[in-house]
Write a protein that binds this DNA or RNA. Sequence first.
DNA 1: ACTATTCCGTGAACACCGTTTACCGTTGCA
DNA 2: TGCAACGGTAAACGGTGTTCACGGAATAGT
Lengths: 235, 235
Amino acid sequence: MTATTPSRRERLRAETVTEIKDAARRLLVAGGPTAISLRAIAREVGMTAPALYRYFASLDALVTTLVSDLFEDLRAAVADVSAVHADEDPLTRIGHMARGFRRWSLDHPAEFALMFGSPLPGVTPLPQRGPPLDEAGARFGETFFAVMSEHYARRSFAGEPHELPDPALREIFRPYIENFGDRFPPAVIYFFITSWTRLYGMVAMEVFGHLAWAVTDVAPLFEVELARALDQLAR
Amino acid sequence: MTATTPSRRERLRAETVTEIKDAARRLLVAGGPTAISLRAIAREVGMTAPALYRYFASLDALVTTLVSDLFEDLRAAVADVSAVHADEDPLTRIGHMARGFRRWSLDHPAEFALMFGSPLPGVTPLPQRGPPLDEAGARFGETFFAVMSEHYARRSFAGEPHELPDPALREIFRPYIENFGDRFPPAVIYFFITSWTRLYGMVAMEVFGHLAWAVTDVAPLFEVELARALDQLAR
DNA sequence: ACTATTCCGTGAACACCGTTTACCGTTGCA
DNA sequence: TGCAACGGTAAACGGTGTTCACGGAATAGT
């Protein structure tokens, strides 16, 4: 019962925490990743900066949980798209999810920059890599992975083998197996990774404005590339 | 003659400028993009911070020219690789250049982060987009573009048409044509962009450590993906 | 050779930042 | 009722980019 009785204090505390995160996200959207500052958040919430240390160990920790929330947002958006097309076959569903990913990223460029902008230690509000973030990223990845493995399960059931394009790849997926077990054959992992990097490259380029010098409307380009990538998965 | 006579003062000034940029790059390599600070640079050079304003309009401007220099470095590295294999056919040469790009990026992760990390206004030492940077980026892109257009020129000479995978794409390349003229057919632009986004996605993922959860050695994965991408260009 | 000007550096100051410390009123619980 | 944990503040430290007033040194003009 203790879990279901948030004891007034815990309730107020939880409200304050979300209020702080909302303020941080508001600043993020308004002015980009660097606009997130402890003092600005404090002003927004109506507190002094040191008070925030009652809720987060540091600005870094605050940003990290914010990024976790954003990953959950993104995951939910993609999962929604996936759910809408639940009755279609996995491959076309992956296509819809990829479009969902692009849509969300274009609609939330500041969030995208914070989440996918260079995650090397040292860049601005640096979301330190580690358990909390990796978990959020893993949950997001799983959303794609689930549908993709379903696709390969059907192919496998139909008797079509899914082979690695190069047997040399078989050895390199040890980290994955250690993290997630060996439920899936290497071929699925391979196609998941390469599809994801391809999708990421395309979307990141567009969101960061690196295609504006050549292209007006990226949408048709994205559609063609998506078709090619899906075609690669299908054969 | 005035251009060849740097007038002692100009010479000292130029030396100081490069000394400043060297210090900035040293800080970048040592501590990542956020380690670049005006005061730290000043300490490194042996001046006070305001003195740097005699050489750069702002920290922003300093970082921007630094990034320009880094793009020139990268371009030279790729061009060197291209020159070494000058006698091979364009397609395999593109492959070598792609490997050169990956090599340079892995060898210079901090520089890569500064150059290709989220270039939205607001992220740390923000290289503002604009003429100086776009020029540097364009020169870098040209290095790839030249070889790729050579590849298509040979194909064209051999009578094989290079067609767009979708005629809907023909209309979207107006910015490119306005920037660089219409010397190249849309198909070349299309394949250049998609190949580049694909290469960027793969390398960025690896440099940023986003593949470590699944893969030990990314090299074979890169080779397979590169082969696939080149195969797409060949057909 | 003397003067005027431009250049190059300094020190002080302002406004921001993250973080720590000491302090204090309020709340919740035994 | 007392006591301990909680949640907030003010002050301070060291860091940041940037501006300004100042001065010395090197250059340019006559």
